[in-house]
Design a protein around this nucleic acid. Structure first.
Length: 915
RNA sequence: GCCCAGGUGGUGGAAUCGGUAGACACGCAGGACUUAAAAUCCUGUGGCUUCACGGCUGUGCGGGUUCAAGUCCCGCCCUGGGUACCA
């Protein structure tokens, strides 16, 4: 035995790690902690494809590296196990989603185990496990029992708000009562008022209702008016819904970004999503009512030529008057009924109607017409805007379309051509604002507006509260019951509220959610909430549970929470930028406010691994026939492209027609094929890996053919971790060849026996080793794993040239390689005579002395063009070097008799002669 | 439209601080070993030009800064991702 038998080696060491609990992590340790977390997967029926492990491999490398460096590493894995696909499957087949989910999890686990990850499986969690969702429900109860105190700027128990009401009553823009009134309110009214403050609350909200899925969706689950999952139409609908008041945390979610090491693009996406805009509110008065607008440009107040209100505006009915009334209401009806999707599709289609009313300009007293416009959104700001066509492009288009006046109040543009939106230039035609810059004008105008009591400086956020209820079965039940129409929480002692068994996973005949089918769905004889939590509930706090997954009395022990604190490295896809990663931060801040956890950001550093795309193969059917043509011939016909299994195609894109017939006999047995040079060549397309496109590559197959270590190295070698790249096995041979070469360094070629020498290494050999230690250590810190793999290759090539088999060189290399290719490293570590496994071996120390050079072969360039090289001692005097260079025969040749103007010597880098 | 990435050989990519562009790997071509194959090893491989030495050219395009630019600045073009009337 001595050839590199990866199948045997990988099986053995995976068994060894499992048997010895090699990666089990303790919560009490003298070592410094390091928490590495992967975004846990939804266990879908399709299993893992080669794209999934990319991030897992990278985070596993970091985890193993940190263990070698002496850290106590927490590296767990689990499953985001509630979700729609299992439920859809249940509806179709009657199979309980828990069964499907368990089967899928089992398959995921097998696939993950084959790749050799160093997870502490004793901490595995599943969000659908009652021992887990008990705490998801518990957090919901805390949210319900909390309000956001703007003065302390954090969440507090609702009792502190009730105390305020009892002592001094309450007054704000929307609500006002004295303490006596509060005490006299009936319970239902009190409950309704408190719901306006609780962080988990019931409200009538405009939601994205998807009739096909029978549920409401969050904004980030809707793409182009279609549900992200399934692609069904989504409509706007007013419903009573549970929501979470994430908007209370908008400012902290924004400023918190400054202190975490996430990518700029991801932070930018969150900033845009939160959408902070500073401006001011301002009231306009019409004959019979007032209209409040929000603007970021109060400095342009003298440029207002009309007001525009949304079709949903509450005062609309009052404003539609005279002969315009019927036309206006007619328009409103149409605009309101247009679905979100239609509105989006027709962005450029300008529509609106005049109400017949006028408002008075607060400073000039001019009459300003009030229009209805569907470019104004009912749900943002106040649902009304002051239109300044000269300085807002949307107002400009509207004004141009309806022939409304355009009045320039900021100099610097040419308003006959387009609006001038920039916040530069000076204010003109504006009474007391004249001559001010835009910035000064904004300040001054707010001051004036405030002094006239017409409005005040105000900050708006785009971020909306998150709808939290789903009309679905496969999710966490919400621990709420209703007494006289008042929502009340379960006692914490009665959690978990277990998901009940039901006969069918469908809404009831009367349209209630599936939980209404459960027998005796009551608490203390009272009706229990029938909606369930959305998919993101369980994933918003799971990082905490890994710290102490079996705890029955709290989400995790204080000791565990204080030791592990937060995630040091969080690895996952960028598609979660505005969904999961925002909710995740929100819940963390909330739990921090209540003093439950020590940190207020969940993850210090976050890396987005890129997507591994699949190449799919297309063949072309001539329309209305069963004739298929090779790609070069398809332009001669009207054809339809059909996706075929990538397994049927070879590296030259040639389709194996016999295999094609065997794959789908009904479709292809009788088909006619028109070939090019005797071959059927298919077309290719790069995109998501999916069952639907028949282009899924299973990591199990790669492990069988090439080994897990090769898969791990190869996925890293493909390119920078963050980049998207198409999967192709071209090149995987090179990685396997590298591992074989590495293996052979330890083995006597002729007899194929393990054979390392105890001789002292040469200087050159030390240099190769230490160069590699330096490079690999730096690369891991920079997440530059592709260059690590090539550094290993260079190292092995060089040692092979020197025929080096010295233990003092090879043994440290085994440790260096072990985070990347742990199985082969374990095997060679054992062969080198070590017991106890390589996983906790010390990382080799880099010694810079071995890299010290006393000479350098300087490239000599003339006007920037390198012509030849000369060797100089590195400590050589610059003047001596200059003399030597100018005297060199070759220099004379390139000077062509001219005198050099200048000679630049960059020590250890380059010489440039300027002629 | 706006925001964020990115554009380097036949291919994936490297060049981490402005200093020899193309490391490493795939592919391809040629060779060694072998009865043969596999495996392994060696040589070559950006383009144009030259018998050769060499020369010219070259990092999406056009300018600029610099002794020196893939890297910095200005203006474009293209690709990928996010977002969508947010006042």
């Amino acid at each position: 035995m001595a050839t590199y038998e990866f199948r045997r080696i990988e099986k053995d060491w995976q068994a060894y790690w499992a048997k010895n609990n090699t990666f089990k992590t303790e919560n009490i340790s003298e070592k410094e902690k390091f928490y590495v977390l992967d975004m846990f997967p939804y266990p879908s029926g399709a299993g893992l494809h080669v794209g999934h492990p990319l991030g897992y491999i990278a985070s596993d490398i970091v985890s193993r590296f940190k263990r070698h460096k002496g850290f106590n590493v927490l590296h767990p894995m689990g499953y985001d196990a509630f979700g729609l696909p299992a439920e859809q499957y249940a509806i179709q087949t009657g199979q309980h989603p828990a069964l499907t989910t368990d089967e899928n999890i089992k398959r995921y686990r097998e696939q993950l185990d084959r790749i050799g990850f160093s997870y502490d499986w004793s901490r595995e969690i599943k969000t659908c496990d009652p021992n887990y969702y008990k705490w998801t429900q518990w957090i919901f109860i805390q949210l319900f029992n909390s309000w956001y105190n703007p003065n302390s700027n954090k969440a507090e128990n609702i009792d502190s708000l009730i105390a305020v009401f009892e002592i001094s009553g309450f007054t704000n823009d929307e609500l006002s009562f004295t303490k006596e009134e509060w005490l006299a309110f009936p319970d239902k009214i009190k409950s309704d008022i408190l719901l306006r403050f609780r962080l988990a609350f019931l409200s009538e909200a405009m939601v994205n209702w998807c009739p096909e899925l029978g549920t409401v969706l969050a904004n980030d689950e809707v793409k182009d008016g279609l549900s992200e999952r399934g692609g069904f139409p989504v409509e706007r609908k007013l419903m009573i819904q549970w929501s979470l008041r994430i908007s209370a945390y908008a400012e902290r979610l924004l400023t918190g970004l400054e202190n975490i090491d996430w990518s700029d693009s991801l932070k930018e996406a969150q900033r845009n999503w939160i959408g902070k805009s500073e401006g001011c509110s301002l009231k306009f008065y019409s004959e019979n009512t007032e209209i409040e607008v929000f603007t970021t440009r109060p400095d342009t107040i003298f440029g207002v030529t009309y007001l525009a209100i949304a079709p949903e505006h509450p005062s609309l009915d009052l404003l539609c008057v005279n002969e315009f009334r019927s036309l206006a209401l007619d328009y409103t009806e149409k605009a309101k009924n247009r679905s979100e999707r239609e509105r989006q599709a027709e962005v450029k289609n300008i529509t609106g109607a005049f109400t017949g009313s006028y408002a008075k300009h607060p400073f000039t007293n001019e009459a300003i017409p009030i229009w209805i416009a569907d470019y104004v959104l009912g749900s943002y700001g106040t649902g009304a805007v002051m239109a300044v066509p000269a300085h807002d492009s949307r107002d400009y288009s509207f004004a141009t379309h309806f022939n409304l006046p355009i009045k320039e109040v900021v100099s610097g543009g040419d308003i006959s051509k387009e609006s001038f939106d920039a916040k530069t230039g000076n204010i003109i035609n504006s009474d007391f604002l004249n001559g001010l810059s835009v910035k000064e004008g904004i300040k001054r105008s707010i001051k004036e507006i405030e002094s006239l009591n017409l409005g005040k400086g105000k900050t708006n956020y785009r971020l909306r509260d998150a709808v939290f209820g789903r009309q679905r079965y496969w999710g966490e039940p919400i621990p709420i019951f209703y007494e006289n129409g008042i929502p009340k929480t379960f006692s914490e002692n009665d959690l978990p509220l277990i998901l009940p068994e039901i006969d069918k996973y469908l809404p009831t005949e009367s349209g209630e959610p599936p939980l209404a089918r459960a027998n005796n769905w009551t608490y203390k004889g009272l009706a229990v909430e029938t909606t369930t939590m959305p998919g993101w509930a369980g994933s918003s706090w799971y990082f905490l549970r890994y710290m102490d997954p079996d705890n029955n009395i709290e989400i995790a022990s204080k000791q565990a929470l204080n030791y592990w604190k937060d995630i040091d490295l969080y690895m996952g896809g960028s598609e979660h930028a505005t969904g999961h990663l925002l909710y995740f931060r929100f819940w963390t801040k909330f739990l921090h406010d209540l003093g439950i956890i020590p940190t207020d950001e969940p993850a210090k550093k976050l890396i987005n691994q890129g997507m591994i795309q699949g190449m799919s193969c297309l063949i072309y059917r001539v329309n209305q026939t069963s004739k298929f043509v090779s790609i070069g011939l398809k332009d001669q016909y009207e054809t339809t492209a059909i996706h075929i299994d990538i397994q049927l195609v070879n590296a030259g894109n040639e389709v194996d027609i016999e295999a094609l017939k065997a794959w789908r006999p009904a479709e292809f047995n009788e088909a006619v094929f028109e070939l090019e040079n005797g071959k059927l060549i298919c077309g290719t397309e790069v995109g998501k890996m999916s069952k639907r496109w028949h282009n899924v590559v299973n990591p199990d197959d790669v492990c069988n053919d090439f080994g897990a270590d090769t898969l791990r190295l190869y996925e890293m070698f493909l390119g920078p971790l963050q980049d998207a790249k198409p999967w192709s096995t071209q090149g995987i041979e090179g990685v396997l060849r590298f591992l074989r070469k590495f293996w052979r360094l330890f083995h006597n070629n002729a007899q194929e026996n393990f054979n390392v020498s105890l001789e002292s290494p040469s200087k050159a050999e030390y240099k190769i080793l230490h160069k590699t230690i330096k490079k690999i250590s730096e690369d891991i810190d920079n997440f530059s794993f592709n260059t690590s793999v090539s550094a290993f290759m260079v190292c092995v090539n060089e040692l092979q040239d020197l025929q080096c088999n010295k233990k003092e060189i090879l043994e440290p290399l085994v440790v260096l390689l072990s985070p990347f290719a742990p199985h082969i490293a374990e095997e060679l570590w054992l062969l080198c005579g070590n017991n106890g496994g390589v996983s906790y071996a010390n990382w080799p120390t880099f010694n810079a002395e071995y890299l010290v050079e006393n000479e350098f072969n300087y490239p000599i360039s003339f006007n920037g063009k390198v012509r030849f090289n000369i060797n100089f001692a590195l400590d050589m005097d610059a003047a001596d070097m200059e003399k030597a260079i100018l005297n060199s025969e070759q220099t004379q040749k390139y000077l062509e008799g001219k005198a050099p103007k200048k000679l630049i010597i960059v020590k250890g880098k380059i010489v440039n002669v300027v002629v």
